[in-house]
Design a binder for these strands. Structure first.
Lengths: 228, 228
DNA sequence: CAGTTCCATGACTTGAGGTCATTCTATGAG
DNA sequence: CTCATAGAATGACCTCAAGTCATGGAACTG
């Protein structure tokens, strides 16, 4: 299994064309337009030509700046993800109530946040599920390097407050938190990814709150310190 | 957010061309060859033309049978997933030791199984992360309709034995199990998706066993009935 | 102002998915 | 055995989007 991705799969290229000084503004405008297009059309259906047309520039320019459609998407993805709040961005009074209250806060608000501005959320979905594995690897690198949601510091916060089990590796807790939060939110928010939890048949949406409570309970038992 | 996938995204087509009687054998041969190609090249890099060439048939034939590359991949994906064992396929003596022992059994064996035959595993990865959202929706439908790993019956098994919490909806348990098992196994097995749990810096593979034990412990606290 | 680097352009190339009129072939009736 | 017919196979052809590149500005540099 070792050599599959390195030898059999065609080499990806997310060439990081170094940010040229003069063109920063233009790069940013391209990324913005591309974000909208990707969000609305999906990765495959989005056309680089359309993005260029929408901006009134030549298609070649986009390739000169980003090298490839993948390269462009990766920039778009990073921008989208960086625009999301970090766990510890919750209001102080919430933070003071502790680790799991911060989680509850965000879960309850996610839906609202996404409704207000679904474009970056949609892009993050595309990156997570809708492109290809080579990109997924790149995204993983990005997450490990930047920790854009501040999960690591958030877990440290929970550990310091004694709200999290000390007998687990921190990495393990971080992974579990990342995985389950991501999947739960995706199921909560998007039709494509709901395995029937939220949309089976005419589930009244009040049930969502119950689901959130249940989910938090499960998580607390899983990684939380013994209560009292 | 409601209308995104229905109105803005171009309509996908996984037309289920009804299985013609005479061509069953050929369909199967195409699916086999395609499985190998997708696994080795990835979805995007795989060429329908190559698959046809490898079989010594015309490209048009493949489209006649499966309608589109997506359609072909979906068949391949289903075949791959159906080839995996169900939870309750574990040996009786393992089953007798209970729900979590069955999980331990499969986690310990997954790596082995995948080494022996990584092709269907790779295909399932592609379906889960490397194609597009429209396909993801189709895959979710498939899972809900077929429950190919037998997760639902497995959870019922755990509930009947009193090993799982009775205060959670069954659907919730199933989802949590699916999510975490999938991600954990993916991290265990693949470079692309490993968020650093197993390969951060030359982790010796003995650590894997420890991870598996930790993971099971976490899961047991999360969804298991109170011990003793 | 001259020289140089960067940037924009759009016509062009490449190549993959997908179509379709035609041809072939297996089957079963007469 | 022959012919009729439906399903399957074919490959030339079409479409269209990603990606390239030679050329021609535009903006700094000294």
């Amino acid at each position: 299994m070792s050599g599959i991705s390195s030898s059999l799969v065609s080499p990806p290229r997310y060439r990081n064309l170094p940010a040229r000084p003069r063109s920063e503004g233009k790069r940013a405008r391209i990324v913005d337009a591309a974000m909208r297009h990707f969000a609305e059309q999906g990765y495959n259906a989005a056309r680089v030509g359309d993005i260029a047309a929408a901006l009134g520039i030549a298609k070649g320019s986009i390739f000169q700046h980003f090298g490839s459609k993948d390269g462009l998407f990766f920039e778009v993805y990073k921008k989208a993800v960086r625009s999301f709040p970090r766990y510890l961005d919750a209001p102080v009074e919430v933070r003071d109530r502790g680790f799991f209250e911060v989680l509850r806060y965000w879960l309850a608000r996610t839906e609202h946040l996404v409704h207000e501005d679904w474009i970056p959320y949609r892009v993050s979905l595309l990156g997570n599920y809708g492109t290809d594995l080579a990109l997924k690897r790149e995204i993983n690198r990005f997450f490990m390097a930047e920790d854009p949601y501040g999960t690591v510091t958030f877990v440290r916060f929970g550990l310091q407050r004694g709200e999290l089990r000390k007998d687990l590796d921190q990495e393990m807790i971080v992974s579990i938190l990342d995985w389950t939060m991501e999947r739960f939110q995706d199921a909560l928010l998007t039709e494509e990814l709901d395995p029937g939890l939220f949309r089976r048949q005419g589930d009244p949406s009040e049930k969502k709150d119950a689901r959130i409570a249940q989910f938090l309970d499960v998580l607390q038992r899983a990684i939380g310190a013994e209560r009292r």
